[in-house]
Design a protein around this nucleic acid. Structure first.
Length: 226
DNA sequence: GCATTAACCACAG
DNA sequence: CTGTGGTTAATGC
């Protein structure tokens, strides 16, 4: 957990389980452990990228400043790899990552990571599998984003937080209205309005950033059809 | 035309 | 930072 114990790290990646003792020791040597607070930038778009990032715990938003406005690509929850495409794909980062809460991150030296891929096929296989799943999820998300109308996108995002992030129907949104708009491709005003509508329709209860989903069925149907 | 959707603006807590 | 109301442009009956 503190940079010296990849071997015993309980948040270790599934792929890292295939590393042998020797490789784990190498990983420890080429890995730096950093703690981030809410709002801290983990890495920035257009900056040089030279590390593989592994989120051990916490919540991170991945975002791009687009031609018109800010766009949140996705929200991810540790433990998970982050920034493999931006590190392997180009010299510079194509997106930024910002912590949404207290978040533990490992910075892994790119060359060591490449060595593992070259020498350990099980490790490589797991990494490729994860990247492929990622792309498939992106395809689905992309179609949804483009073809759904605004309340459908908002409902989808609420379901996402309930199902994937918090595993609960009551949670506190880790985003401002503006950020929620950036995530769902809406203006902040539209997000406000849709939230109050859902509140009035008794689909959710809304108190500031605290959300309780009252009617999951209804929310899913809005997400699917709206 | 008329209704709906959603962005933009302005202003108020 | 949020919520609300008015306005406007695009799209679809």
């Amino acid at each position: 957990m503190n940079g010296k114990s990849c071997e015993f790290c309980s948040n270790r990646s599934f792929a890292a389980n295939f590393l042998n003792d020797n490789e784990l020791k190498l990983l420890e040597k080429s890995c730096v452990d950093v703690q981030f607070s809410k709002g801290d930038v983990i890495f920035k778009q257009n900056a040089l990228s030279s590390n593989i990032i592994y989120v051990k715990s916490g919540l991170v938003k991945i975002h791009i400043s687009g031609p018109e406005r800010e766009q949140i690509l996705k929200i991810i929850k540790g433990p998970i790899y982050l920034g493999i495409p931006t590190t392997f794909g180009d010299k510079i980062n194509h997106y930024s990552a910002t912590a949404l809460m207290e978040t533990g991150v490992c910075f892994i030296d790119l060359n060591s990571f490449k060595d593992f891929i070259a020498s350990n096929s099980n490790f490589a296989y797991e990494i490729i599998t994860e990247l492929c799943k990622n792309e498939l999820a992106h395809f689905a998300h992309c179609v949804n984003q483009v073809q759904k109308q605004s309340q459908g996108r908002v409902a989808e995002a609420l379901c996402f937080f309930a199902d994937e992030i918090f595993n609960a129907s009551i949670f506190e949104l880790p985003l401002s209205r503006q950020e929620f708009g950036d995530l769902t491709g809406n203006s902040r005003e539209s997000v406000s309005r849709i939230f109050t509508n859902l509140n009035n329709d008794k689909v959710i209860t809304l108190k500031g950033k605290n959300i309780e989903i009252l009617d999951m069925e209804r929310l899913r149907s809005i997400s699917k059809n709206g």
